[in-house]
Lab assay of single mutants.
Amino acid sequence: AEKTGIVNVSSSLNVREGASTSSKVIGSLSGNTKVTIVGEEGAFYKIEYKGSHGYVAKEYIKDIKDE
């Protein structure tokens, strides 16, 4: 049951290796980017990222929809 969301930041949002603010940053997404959410862990969504997965803070994702 995948969902999509939109990155809701003015600059960019860090994509992390794990569901923690201390996890390594593996990339970033600019505002209004559409993401595919494959799961959630605590305050983070697990998303599809560059052929693999990454984690982003839930508070910066809006317009969550079921695909």
Rank of each mutant, 00 (worst) to 15 (best):
V38T: 05
T36H: 14
K62E: 14
K65F: 10
K62V: 10
G27P: 00
E40K: 04
A19S: 06
S12M: 09
G39N: 08
G18C: 06
V38L: 13
K34C: 05
G39Q: 05
E2V: 15
K3Q: 11
K50Y: 12
A19F: 04
S30I: 15
K34H: 08
S10R: 04
Y45Q: 01
I64K: 05
S30E: 09
R16A: 06
I61F: 03
S28N: 12
N14G: 14
N32E: 11
S28T: 13
G54F: 03
V7M: 02
E48Q: 09
K3R: 13
G31V: 14
L13K: 02
D63L: 09
S22P: 04
V56T: 02
E41K: 12
I61H: 01
G39V: 03
T36C: 04
G18E: 14
S10I: 15
K3I: 11
S10G: 11
V38S: 06
E41M: 11
K24L: 07
K3L: 12
E48I: 14
S52L: 15
T21I: 05
G39H: 04
N32F: 09
T4R: 03
V25A: 06
K3S: 13
D66G: 11
A1W: 09
E17V: 10
Y60D: 05
I26H: 02
S12W: 14
D66H: 11
Y45A: 02
E40Y: 07
K46P: 00
S28F: 10
T21H: 15
L29K: 01
T36K: 10
V15G: 00
G18S: 12
Y45E: 00
I6S: 05
G54R: 02
A1P: 15
S10L: 14
A57T: 07
A1K: 06
I47L: 02
S28L: 11
G51C: 05
S30D: 15
S28Y: 08
E17F: 08
I47G: 00
K65M: 13
V35E: 00
E17R: 05
G39I: 03
H53I: 07
Y49V: 03
F44H: 04
N14P: 07
Y49D: 01
A1T: 07
S10N: 10
N14Q: 12
H53V: 06
A43K: 15
V38C: 04
E67K: 03
G5R: 01
S52F: 12
V35C: 04
K24E: 07
G51H: 10
I64N: 08
L13A: 06
S11G: 15
N32I: 04
R16D: 01
T4D: 05
G31F: 10
A43F: 11
I26N: 02
N14C: 06
I26V: 13
S12A: 09
G54K: 03
A57S: 04
N8K: 10
E2D: 11
S11D: 12
L29Q: 02
F44K: 01
G42N: 15
E17K: 05
G18D: 09
V56S: 01
E67F: 04
G5L: 02
N14S: 08
Y45L: 08
G5T: 03
S23H: 14
K58P: 01
T33A: 11
D66K: 01
S12T: 13
S30P: 10
G31N: 12
Y45D: 01
N8C: 05
N8A: 15
E59L: 07
S22E: 08
Y45W: 07
I61T: 02
K62R: 13
I61E: 01
G5N: 03
Y49A: 01
S11R: 12
N32G: 08
E17Y: 08
I47D: 00
V7T: 09
I64A: 08
V7H: 02
G54Y: 03
R16I: 05
L13Q: 03
V9N: 07
E59W: 05
A19E: 03
N32C: 06
Y55M: 02
I64M: 06
K34N: 10
K62I: 07
A1L: 08
K62H: 09
S20N: 09
Y55N: 00
L29I: 06
K50D: 09
E41W: 08
V25G: 03
V15W: 02
E67Y: 06
V9Y: 06
I64W: 15
I26G: 01
I37E: 00
S22T: 13
A1H: 12
T36V: 09
A19I: 06
I61M: 06
N8E: 09
T21D: 13
V25H: 06
S20F: 11
G5H: 04
K24F: 09
D66C: 06
S11V: 13
T33Q: 07
N14D: 08
T4N: 08
S28Q: 12
K65C: 04
A43G: 12
T33E: 13
V35A: 02
L13C: 04
V38E: 04
